[in-house]
Design a binder for these strands. Structure first.
Lengths: 149, 149
DNA sequence: TGCAAATGGTTACAGGTGAAACTATAAATC
DNA sequence: GATTTATAGTTTCACCTGTAACCATTTGCA
């Protein structure tokens, strides 16, 4: 008989499983922001991330953009190709190292940035509005701990 | 002169921008778990999610799996096709509705589940070990608030 | 009953993605 | 200074993804 040999299995409760919860939340938030700019500016999420980094740190190389965005260097290369093609990013070659590119937002890139950045900020504001001041501090501290090396 | 007409621009500080931090953390965590099973079991992340849901709730339809995993119905359809093909999920047809499928893990599916689930749990345990008890409670409460409808 | 609308699921298409291979340049080593 | 090794960036390949169109079945309703 097998009646006393049935294994327990112990399935995950996805709804309480932290990695799953983080994934759902992150996707929901990122997608709702992306909806605002993908249609309006023909801008993919990876492209926007590259632009946001170049807005904050000018004259980066492609590798540095990849490090800052934590994106794959191939993804960055392709996003940059589209952004340069669209005239949103200016690419030149590094003075002392002909392998490196030197990247910065163009006028047109800044114009888009200055429209998208407030939209993104507004989404963050709405999200944080669900939390009180103490919870926001807690969240920041917790994320710091979870993301530390 | 333009010296008093330079616009502020106000780029996002990605490193303090909540949606971005969530995205980085979520991707890091999910990928480190996925590394454990993609190579060993030829199992994609979407397939694992489908299996985890079917482990917890048997006899779901594909649409119900999509709802529970919050995945696109097309993604679910394709993951199921692969899982059924690999003999990891049994698919039959609903009694009173010939459109619906009725899905459950097979023996082989359960065997994989019983290896992967502990790996996933161990990763969550390691992640949560960075937090004290109070912080864990705070995180759960905060995620509930952020994810509520 | 008959027919339009809704639903479950799959397929086609048009991208996007990472791993690995590749090119060009620079740095290190001898 | 020549040769090996490392680095920046692109291209190729094989695969994954979402949207829209599609088929089959069921439901709603006249």
């Amino acid at each position: 008989m097998t009646s006393d040999a049935v294994p327990a299995h112990a399935p995950l409760e996805l709804e309480n499983f932290l990695p799953y919860r983080l994934s759902i939340l992150s996707n929901t938030v990122s997608q709702s922001i992306a909806e605002e700019y993908t249609g309006r500016f023909q801008l993919s999420m990876t492209e926007w991330r590259v632009m946001a980094v170049l807005a904050r740190f000018a004259d980066l190389s492609a590798r540095e953009v990849a490090e800052r965005t934590r994106m794959d260097k191939v993804a960055v290369s392709r996003a940059l190709a589209r952004l340069v093609e669209a005239g949103r990013v200016d690419r030149s070659i590094h003075d002392g190292d002909k392998r490196r590119s030197v990247l910065k937002l163009s006028e047109a890139g800044w114009a888009i940035h200055d429209e998208v950045a407030p939209l993104a900020r507004e989404h963050e504001r709405e999200l944080l509005a669900r939390l009180d001041v103490a919870e926001r501090e807690q969240l920041n501290r917790i994320l710091d701990k979870l993301m530390s090396p």
